[in-house]
Design a protein around this nucleic acid. Structure first.
Lengths: 186, 186
DNA sequence: TAATTTATACAGTTCAAACTGTACAAATTA
DNA sequence: TAATTTGTACAGTTTGAACTGTATAAATTA
């Protein structure tokens, strides 16, 4: 199939310009996913190429050092938006962009939401018994504040319970029963 | 009601320690929302206080400069997780944390998702006609690559259409029909 | 075995963001 | 009016993140 080098040919000039419009837009919005512009640009570049890419190709395409590409590629790998692939006879590492946005959506947000739940629930479970004890204090002031805190914690837990359900529904695909994927053309 | 100063009294020592466990956890996970740890810590502090807070109180509570608090409070205001409130006879600006996590969830993600849609769809609408034209090129190679790009763009648009529906459903509260909020105790 | 290729660890540089203190403008009080 | 209070603009400092080039480890080839 198409080798990366060919895209540098002059006849792809217009196509590359059109692609760059979108690559820049994608790179710009990737901050929502905790990625830098550079990292976003690499992903978008790989997304359009559609083929596995080596670190050297990436360095050439973005005009950056191979060391940078090694780090950036690892970031994308950790975020699960690219895969490391293997090809017979190719000694270099190959990375390929995940092209299914529904999948990357699920990976990204579920991972983040789950981390949020875990970290915060862990802290709540540590703090709650202490506050519960204080809510039985003899000091009326302390009691009042502790009870108000307990209510806040209950609300937080209620929210995380809901978030858990949301994550499950996104990961299982149940969400698409409620909010269906638009049909493909034809 | 409870004035901030009182919380510095020794009898609230245990309570403050318990709160700090959660404040630190919340501050740590706020990076998911594009906020720094400091910004997250301020929000969490205000969340627990439950009362409107002045810049001076914030500076005292976090041991940071008033200038920092002014900037950080503005950030929280822009992210819509705190409100500027007014109290009779109080000359200072007052900020109060939004305590409804469901609301902040909706604000945060819908805002982000909408920005992503807008920026990317704008770029797609600019690039697509160019690529469409190239897909009718005489050069078979160019044609092939252009057509592959068009398919990618269609998939992207399909995804953004879905995201739009998701945003609508979160903003309208329709989502809670499918994934209900857990019931409050009692 | 030695020679070559590839990825990455590491050290150094550059740049941007976070924070501070000062100075000032706007509003309030006297 | 002048004196005081409050929030923020601005300039300077510090810190950390992104990136580069070099050196090295690991793997492959000869």
């Amino acid at each position: 199939m198409l080798q990366y080098k060919e895209l540098e040919s002059d006849k792809y000039k217009d196509l590359n310009e059109a692609r760059d419009l979108i690559i820049n837009a994608m790179a710009e919005t990737m901050d929502l996913y905790g990625l830098t512009t550079s990292t976003g640009r690499l992903y978008a570049t790989m997304f359009f190429l559609g083929e596995p890419m080596t670190l050297d190709q990436m360095a050439g395409a973005l005009g950056m050092s191979k060391t940078s590409m090694s780090n950036t590629a690892r970031t994308l790998l950790e975020k699960k938006v690219v895969d490391k692939v293997w090809q017979k006879g190719v000694r270099k590492d190959l990375y390929q962009a995940e092209e299914d946005f529904f999948k990357t959506f699920a990976e990204f947000f579920c991972h983040g939401w789950r981390r949020e739940m875990e970290v915060n629930l862990k802290a709540i479970n540590k703090a709650e018994p202490i506050i519960k004890e204080l809510s039985e204090s003899d000091d009326e002031e302390v009691k009042k504040v502790a009870n108000s805190d307990l209510e806040k914690l209950d609300n937080a837990k209620r929210y995380y319970l809901w978030l858990e359900r949301l994550v499950e529904s996104v990961e299982s695909g149940e969400i698409y029963k409620y909010i269906p994927k638009p049909k493909r053309k034809e």
